[in-house]
Simulated scan of single mutants.
Amino acid sequence: PVPLKDAERLAKLPGLKLETRGYDWISPWLFLDVNVDRPYFKDARVRQALAHAIDLNAFNKVVWYGFGKPAVSPVVSTLKQFHTDDVPKYGYDPKKAEALLDEAGL
């Protein structure tokens, strides 16, 4: 394994080839759990606002150096028999996040 911060530089070397396949089943996961027992997070609008406030593409670029793939569910997309893209999506939208928080009285 090569540190992701070095992958792009090493891929430019003529004697090396960068291969990103092979980690589909054992790739690291980063996820955010929300404690819905906390008063603010009991409101679905607050949880949705949080989801709209996170720029997953920027996160992928900074943390995973562009090698990651933002997920839409806890089931990895390579598990085709269990994964579906037919779930609610919460794209990066700070204005929508702000509006949802306003609706929730925050």
Rank of each mutant, 00 (worst) to 15 (best):
K69C: 02
F41Q: 04
K95L: 12
I54A: 04
V87D: 00
L56F: 06
Y40C: 11
V76M: 10
D93E: 09
D86I: 07
K95M: 12
A44N: 05
S73G: 09
Y92H: 14
R38P: 04
T78Q: 10
Y92F: 15
H52W: 00
D33E: 15
D93Q: 05
Q48V: 11
G68V: 03
N60M: 02
N57S: 14
K69S: 02
V63I: 14
W64H: 11
K42I: 08
G22S: 12
L10V: 08
A58F: 08
P39I: 07
P14Y: 07
P94A: 06
D93C: 03
S77R: 01
G15E: 15
L13R: 09
G15I: 12
L79A: 11
D43G: 03
D24H: 13
P14N: 06
A49D: 05
I26Y: 06
L30Q: 09
R21W: 08
P94Y: 02
T78S: 12
Y23I: 15
L32C: 05
F59S: 01
L13W: 04
T84F: 04
D43L: 06
K61A: 15
V63D: 07
V62E: 13
T20E: 10
L79D: 12
S27F: 11
L50T: 00
S27N: 13
V75M: 03
A71N: 06
P88L: 04
V36M: 15
S77L: 01
F31G: 03
L50Y: 00
T20Y: 06
S27L: 14
I54T: 05
V63Q: 10
E19H: 11
Y65G: 03
K69D: 03
N35E: 07
P28H: 10
I26A: 05
L10C: 07
A51H: 00
A51M: 04
H52P: 01
L18K: 12
D33G: 15
I26G: 06
I26K: 07
D85E: 13
V76Q: 08
D85M: 06
L32G: 04
N57G: 07
R45H: 05
R21N: 09
V34I: 15
R21G: 09
V36W: 09
Y40H: 13
K96A: 04
K17F: 12
R47P: 00
I26L: 07
A53K: 00
P39H: 07
V87T: 02
S77V: 00
L10M: 09
H83T: 02
L18W: 04
I26D: 07
A58I: 03
K42G: 05
D24I: 11
K12R: 14
V63R: 09
S73P: 01
P88V: 02
H83F: 12
P94Q: 03
S73A: 09
S73F: 05
S27G: 14
